[in-house]
Simulated assay, not measured.
Amino acid sequence: MNKLAYDDGSTWFYRLRETTAFWMFLILLGLVALFSLISPHHAFLSVNNFFNIALNASQLVLLAVGMTFLLGAKEFDLSVGSNIVLASILAAKTITALAGTPDEVAVGDYPHLGLAVAVGVVVALGSGALFGLVNGLLVTTLRLSSFLVTLATTAIGLGMALVLTHGANVPDIPRALQTDFATYRLFDLVPLPVLLSLALVMLLWFVLAQTRFGVHTLALGSSVDAARRAGINHKLHLLKLFALMGVLCGVAALLDISRFATTNIGGHQTDNLQAVAAAVIGGTSLFGGMASVQGTLVGSLIPVVLGTGLVIMGLDSFYQLILVGLIVIAAVYIDQRNRQTRF
């Protein structure tokens, strides 16, 4: 009996060691330990700093989890940055238009703020979902590569955003979005955006790991032909996956405008690469059929921890890009080695 338990434990630990997420988690712990030891006055090792790290990662983790589902089905979405920009602009324009008259809004008076925010949330989520559905329709109907389709819709989405704004950020976004949500901390500790992101991540982890939807997603990534023979409507499922990615872009857009009280037309250009990197670092395979939401959470924290630690150390945070690139190469190497071992 004891021998059986030992063997089971050994098998479990061996399988854990073979996952990319395990090694990336060790890297994350190593980075936290390193910066905690060498930062001036151990400034990195503080509860407030850890919550700031979580806040900075709250947008990226949503995009990375959405990308995890798509990569699990062997698809891409490189248009997430443009989707966020467009959704944030539409939401911001909706909020400022409904919150009061132009004169009232210009002086910071928002008599209809509640209604404006509620409709703005619907617009952001709806815009993001529609953008994602368009991507999915182009992929499934025209039978085009999702890589090429979303590369094209990146330009289309950004162009639409620039046409709507004439290249200028939307002004007069209510500061209450910052004070009452983005910077508000539950029990003076946990930022509300972190709680929202964490709740969505936990829900999507359950969907991927415990539901038929998750099984169908990984089945498509393993073999589309086999999934079809099993009765899976692959076109409809892909539409759902791209729509899910779009909805998460809408949530990220809302977090963006609430945190900074402005739109960011010139930003989000590297969000697609960051999302893919976070998913791959966390153990999601670029070749489909394997995905890990919990690993993606780890993969989303690594670049943020790096950036925060470098800033505290007084170094240029741009070194983060180099280090993350090296970690992605290591993660892809581990993934390929593991696939060769299994097959």
Results as ranks from 00 to 15, higher is better:
253 A>F: 07
38 I>H: 00
212 R>G: 00
122 V>D: 01
48 N>C: 00
30 G>K: 03
69 F>N: 06
313 M>K: 06
72 G>R: 02
267 G>C: 04
67 M>L: 11
191 P>W: 07
138 L>M: 12
156 I>R: 07
1 M>T: 13
271 D>E: 12
243 A>M: 15
222 S>E: 11
116 A>L: 09
324 V>Y: 04
229 R>Q: 09
16 L>F: 05
292 S>T: 15
260 F>T: 15
278 A>S: 15
50 F>Q: 02
144 L>H: 01
230 A>L: 11
27 I>M: 04
20 T>Q: 06
335 D>T: 15
150 T>I: 10
197 S>W: 01
125 L>S: 06
244 L>I: 10
227 A>C: 08
304 V>Y: 05
317 S>P: 07
287 F>Y: 12
58 S>C: 13
17 R>C: 13
88 S>Q: 02
166 H>K: 07
316 D>T: 09
287 F>L: 14
21 A>L: 04
69 F>D: 08
337 R>N: 13
228 R>T: 13
343 F>S: 11
262 T>S: 15
204 L>V: 09
201 V>L: 10
154 T>R: 07
98 L>F: 11
293 V>M: 10
271 D>N: 10
312 I>V: 13
334 I>D: 01
95 I>K: 07
37 L>I: 15
187 F>S: 03
283 G>K: 10
56 N>K: 08
116 A>Y: 07
245 M>Q: 13
54 A>E: 05
241 L>P: 04
104 E>W: 11
216 H>I: 00
194 V>Y: 06
207 V>M: 14
315 L>M: 10
99 A>E: 00
77 D>E: 14
215 V>C: 01
9 G>C: 02
335 D>E: 14
179 T>Q: 08
235 K>R: 12
305 V>P: 02
153 T>N: 05
333 Y>G: 04
245 M>L: 09
290 M>G: 00
55 L>M: 05
72 G>P: 08
156 I>V: 14
212 R>D: 07
